[in-house]
Write a protein that binds this DNA or RNA. Sequence first.
RNA 1: CGGGGUGUAGCGCAGUCCGGUCAGCGCACCUGCUUUGGGAGCAGGGGGUCGGGGGUUCAAAUCCCCCCACCCCGACCA
Length: 475
Amino acid sequence: MAKKLTAQADDFSAWYNEVIAKAELADNAPTRGCMVIRPYGFALWENMVAVLDRMFKETGHVNAYFPLLIPDSFFQKEAEHVEGFSPECAVVTHGGGKKLEESLMVRPTSETIIADMYARWIQSYRDLPLLINQWANVFRWELRPRAFLRTTEFLWQEGHTAHATAAEAEEETLRILDIYRTFAEDYMAIPVLYGPKTDAEKFPGALQTYAIEGMMKDGKALQMGTSHDLGQNFSRAFNIDFQTRDGSREHVYQTSWGMSTRTVGAIIMAHGDDRGLVLPPRLAPHQVVVIPIAKSDEEQAVVQEAVDKLVASLEGVRVKVDDREQFGLGWKFTEWETKGVPLRVELGPRDIASGQAVVVRRDTGEKEFVSLETLGKRVGDLLETVQRDMFQRALDFREARSREIRDREAFVSAANGDGGFIHAHWCGDPACEAAVKDETRNTIRCVPMDWEADSGVCAYCGRASERKVVYAQAY
RNA sequence: CGGGGUGUAGCGCAGUCCGGUCAGCGCACCUGCUUUGGGAGCAGGGGGUCGGGGGUUCAAAUCCCCCCACCCCGACCA
C-alpha cells in the first residue's frame, strides 16, 4: 500500500482510482471492464439499496425478477431502443455446445422482456397500475470503463410501471424523480439539479427522460438517476393493451427508472478529500470506529471493559471496534480516515482516568473530549451534524462553481474552462446543442424544473429562448 | 476502431538496447523477540513455468516471428 494518495488537485482521476483501491471498495476483475465490489464497497451499496427499496415499497411498488438473457427479436421491436442499445450489447450465440436458433442479448436494460410479460399479464384497467421494480445486474459493452462510473457489468434497480392514462404515467415518472432527489440529498448528502433531459440526451425509446445531476469535486456533472416517461412506445411495440371501464381497448402508458452502483462513484467524488473517502453517516458501513489504546496487559483489561461499556451506550449506531493487534495507532487512524468513517472514538488509559473519550470528525478533523456518560447522545448528535454539514458543504461548493452566462464569448470560454456548471439560455434547437458539444465538450445536463420561467436569448446562437438550462462536462 | 504504452513474486518495479551466477529490489506475507496516544524495530523465512506459442543458439527474461491480455488518450454511454 502506497503511503500517500495523489492529491485531488494534482490528478483527480488518479486520486479516484487510488481511493477505491486503498479504501477497499472495489478491485479490478480479470474480466475486461468489470470490477469486483469488495465487502466494504458492497456494504455501502447495501445500505443504499435498503433505503431505496424501502422508499419504493412505501410508494406501492413490489419487487420481481426477470431473466438476464433476452431474445434478440425483442430488441428489434422498438426502433429507437434497438438503435440506442445494440452497439453496446453482449450477445450469447451458443448454448449447450450448439449454435442457438436465436441469439440472446445479455440485458443492457429490461424494458423489452418486461414489456413482453406485461402484455400477458395486463387485460383490464383493473390490472393497472402495475408497479414492479427489480434489483439486477446489467451489461453494457462500454468502450472506456471506469470503476463504479462506467463498468461493463453494473448493479442497479430498474422500475417498470404500466398505467391507464398518460397523466398517471407522467405523475409516476415525477414521483420517482422526487424519490431519487430525496435519496441523493438526504442520504448521499449530494445536492442535485433535476428536470427533463433534452431530446439528444433522453433514453432510447422514451418520450421524456428526467434526471438528477450532481456536481463532483472536479466540477464535472454526474447523472445519478433517471426516470423515463415511455408513453405508449413500448406498449404499441409489444401490444400491451387493456380494456377500459367503458369497454374500449387502449395501450398502456409506461415508465421506467433506474439508479445504479454509479452512485457509489458519486459519493466518492462529491465528498472525498486528499485523505480519502468521506462517507455520509446515513449510508456509511461503520458510522463510528472505536480505537482502544493500551500498552500493557493490565491496561488492556481495563480498556477492554471501558470499550464494552462504551459500545453498549451506542445502541442503534453502526460501530466498529478496531482491536487488531498487528497495527499501530497511526496505521489505524489513517486506514479509517481513508475509508471515510464519519467518527472516530479513541479510548485509552488517560481518557478512562478522566472519564472521557476523544471523538474526531472525519469531515472536519475536529477533535473533542466527551464524557463517557454523555457519549451516546453526543455521538448521535454529531452523526446528524456531520450529515447536514456534508450536504451544506457540497451545496456551497456547487454554488461557488456555478455561474450564469448570457453572451457567447463568455459562454464558450467558461465551457472550455476547468469545469463547473453554466446556467444559460438555450434556444431549443438540437443543432445548437450539438455545436456546443463539439466546440466545448459541454452538454445540457437538464432543464431544471424548479427554476422560474424566464425568457431571453440563447447564450450560444443568440436566438430567442424560453428556458434556461445547465451546461457542464459530464462523466 | 484510430493513437500511445505495458506484461518479470500478492502489489509496485529494476534487469531487455549489448544473450552467459540476473531470478533480483521495495512493500506485503510467515516465525520469534521487543514495541504501541499519528503509517514501529531487529533477526530469520516462504513465495516465480519472466503473458502464451514457435524459432535462432552450446546457452534466451534478453534476439526473430505469431498470438493474447490489460492500461492510458479520443469517438459511445447510467
